[in-house]
Design a protein around this nucleic acid. Structure first.
Lengths: 339, 339
DNA sequence: CTGAAAGCGCTTACAG
DNA sequence: CTGAAAGCGCTTACAG
C-alpha cells in the first residue's frame, strides 16, 4: 500500500541506489535524473520508512526531551520549541519523564537513565534542570554515545548547553525594586537542586549590596519553586508587623510570586499599593494573576528550539554551541513605587 | 557494542529464533531454555533494536498525541497519563501539534494530517478536541489504517473515545449555585468548535429551567476558553449595574474563571462576598488564583492513560472501549451563599 | 520443542 | 554519473 523506494525506482527506471541519492541530497546524480525521481516520489506520496532507514544507519531520527520535576508550564514551552525545530528537519520528539529526586545513589541514577535510553534509541537528548547537572546521567549518556544539550545547567561542564544569565536578570529586577524606593525586599529562593536558585539569589544579593544596604536573614526564605512553598514563604514574610514587614517580595519564579499575591489577598494586603511583588520566567501565569506580575521574561521556547535544532544536525561541534540567550525585564502591574 | 539477539543466542547456545520466542513470550520453549535465555539477556543488558523489530513487524511501538489549540495545562496532563501508560507496555509517546483552526478546506485538513502521519509511522493516535471531531482527520486515519482514540469528542461516532458527561457536570455545578441562593447566574461559553462548549451550556440551561427560572440572553456571553476572552466576557457581565449585575458567574473553563476573578479584582468587586465564580476542569490554575476556584474536576490524567493503554494493546475491540469517566464537583472558596 | 531461510526497506562500501 | 551486492537486527512462515 505505502510506496517504497523500489516502487519509485521502478517507475523512474533507475536503481534504488539512485533514488536513495536523490532523497538524501547526495551528489553524483544527473540533474535530469534527479528531477524525474523527485517528481515521481511526490507523485507516489513516497516517504522513507523510518524503521528501515534507522536500521541501516543506526540513527532513529528521534530526539528525547527528558525532564524531572520542573513545572509543567516551563516544560510545555520548551517542548513546543523543540517540536517546531524537529519538524523543520524531519525529526520527531519523544517525551520521557525521569524522576530522580528521591534517588540518592549515583549508580541508581545511572541505571534509571540507561533504562530509558536502552528501550528507545534516540539520536539526541535534551536535558532539563536539574537532570542536566547529574554527573551520573551525563556519564551514562556519554557511555551510550548519545549527544545531549543541557538546558540552564549549574556549571558549564563539557557538554553543550543553552542558558541565560540568571544572576544579572535577578540583579536588574532587584535594582528596579530599589529604584522604586523599596528598602526591605523579601526574597523567596527556589529548589536547592536547581542551578538557577543560587544564581538568582546571588543577583538579588549583589544588587542589595551595591546600593550599600545589608542583607537581612529574616527577609530571605527558602522555597522550592512550587506554588505551595510560595504560600508558606509568603505567610512567613508577611507575618512580620509594622516597619519590619517587607514592602516588596521578589520570588524566584512566577508560581511562587502568584502564591505571594494570593496570600496577600487573604491577608487583605493590597498589591501593589501595600506590597510590590515580582516573579521570574514570565509563564502564562504571570498574566493570569491579578494584578499581572512584573517578571523576567526567559526565552524558554527558543531554548527548546535551539536545543533540538542542534541535536538534529549531523556533525557535532560542542564548544561553539554553548549559548547564553537574552532575557527581558517585563514590567506589569504588581510593582509600584513606595510613597 | 550494544548486544544483539545474535549475541544472546550464541551465549545461550540456541538459535536466534528461540531467543525471539522467549523475548516475545511465545509458547514452545522448554522452561529450562527459557530461563537460561532470560538470564543471559539480562546479563548482556540486551534490549531489542526497535528499528529492526519495527521493520520486521511494520509496527513502530510509537503512539502519537496529536493536539490543536487546547490549553497547555490540559495537554500536559493528558500527556503525563499517556506517557505513564506507554512506559508500562514498552511504547513511547511522540507529540505532534497540528493546527487546523485556520484551515477551512476539508482536503487541506486531510493533507495536513496525512503529512504528519506519513513522516512518522505510529501504531496509534490520541486525538484531542477539537481535532477528534474533524471528519477529514478521521477519514485520513482510517485510510492509513491507524488506530485512534478520541478524547472528549462531540459525537459518539464509530471510533473509540473517552469522555465525561459534561452536560451533567455543568448542570450539577449550576444547581450548586442555585442552592446557594443565586438567581442571576452569568455564563461564559467556550470555543464554538469544542464539543464541551455546547454540552456545558446545555447543562447550565437545564438546571436553570428545572427550577423554573428563565434564561436571559444578557447573562450568556461567548468566550473561547482563553483567559483573554474571559476578560472581555467578564467586563461585559460586570458592567451591568444594580440588580441586573449577576451575583454569580459560571465560566466554561478555569482560564476564563480566573479572568473573571481578575476583572472583579480590578473593579473592586469582592469574590466571593459580592460575586461568586466557578470554573471547569480543575487545572492547577484553579488552586493558584485567589480565592481558589470552585470547579469541576475532570479525570484528565486518566483519560490520557486509558487512551494510550488501549492503543498499545495488540487486538482492537472498539465499541467496548468507549468510556465515560467520572467527574467531581470541587468546592473551594470562590462561591458563597447569597445573604 | 527447536532452527534455517527469507525478507522487511533502507544505506554503506565497492565496482564500473 | 550509475548500479549490484551485502547487511543492519529483528520476525514470519515453514520444516523438522
Amino acid at each position: 500500500m505505502k510506496a517504497t523506494i523500489t516502487d519509485v525506482a521502478q517507475k523512474a527506471g533507475v536503481s534504488i541506489k539512485t533514488v536513495s541519492r536523490v532523497l538524501n541530497n547526495e551528489p553524483n546524480v544527473a540533474d535530469k535524473t534527479r528531477a524525474r525521481v523527485k517528481a515521481i516520489a511526490t507523485e507516489l506520496r513516497y516517504s522513507p520508512n523510518l524503521a528501515a532507514r534507522g536500521l541501516a544507519t543506526s540513527k532513529s531520527y528521534l530526539i528525547a526531551l527528558i525532564y524531572g520535576d520542573s513545572s509543567l508550564n516551563y516544560i510545555s514551552h520548551i517542548q513546543r520549541g523543540a517540536i517546531d525545530a524537529c519538524r523543520e528537519v524531519g525529526y520527531h520528539l519523544v517525551v520521557e519523564p525521569l524522576y530522580l529526586e528521591k534517588v540518592q545513589m549515583r549508580q541508581e541514577k545511572a541505571d534509571a537513565m540507561r533504562a530509558v535510553l536502552e528501550r528507545l534509541p534516540v539520536d539526541g537528548v535534551i536535558l532539563m534542570p536539574p537532570l542536566c547537572d547529574s554527573e551520573a546521567v551525563l556519564q551514562t549518556l556519554s557511555e551510550l554515545r548519545i549527544k545531549c544539550v543541557r538546558l540552564a545547567p549549574k556549571n558549564r561542564g563539557t557538554q553543550p548547553f543553552i542558558g541565560m544569565d540568571d544572576e544579572t536578570a535577578a540583579e536588574q529586577m532587584t535594582q528596579h525594586l530599589l529604584e522604586q524606593g523599596h528598602k526591605r525586599i523579601g526574597f523567596i529562593k527556589g529548589h536547592a537542586s536547581h542551578a538557577a536558585t543560587d544564581l538568582r539569589y546571588d543577583g538579588y544579593a549583589r544588587a542589595i549590596n551595591k546600593v550599600g544596604l545589608t542583607l537581612s536573614e529574616d527577609l530571605i526564605v527558602q522555597g522550592d519553586f512550587s506554588f505551595d512553598s510560595g504560600v508558606v514563604a509568603a505567610r512567613q514574610l508577611l507575618s512580620m508587623t509594622g516597619k519590619k514587614r517587607p514592602s516588596a517580595i521578589f520570588a524566584s519564579n512566577d508560581d511562587m510570586a502568584a502564591a505571594v499575591v494570593s496570600v496577600a489577598g487573604q491577608m487583605r494586603i493590597d498589591v501593589p499599593s501595600e506590597l510590590s511583588v515580582c516573579g521570574f520566567n514570565d509563564t502564562p501565569l504571570a498574566k493570569i494573576v491579578f494584578p499581572a506580575l512584573t517578571t523576567v521574561r526567559q526565552p524558554i521556547y527558543k531554548m527548546g528550539y535551539q536545543a533540538a535544532k542542534y541535536l538534529a544536525r549531523d556533525k557535532g561541534g560542542t564548544a561553539e554551541m554553548n549559548q547564553i540567550l537574552d532575557f527581558e525585564i517585563k514590567l506589569r502591574d504588581s510593582v509600584s513605587a513606595v510613597i
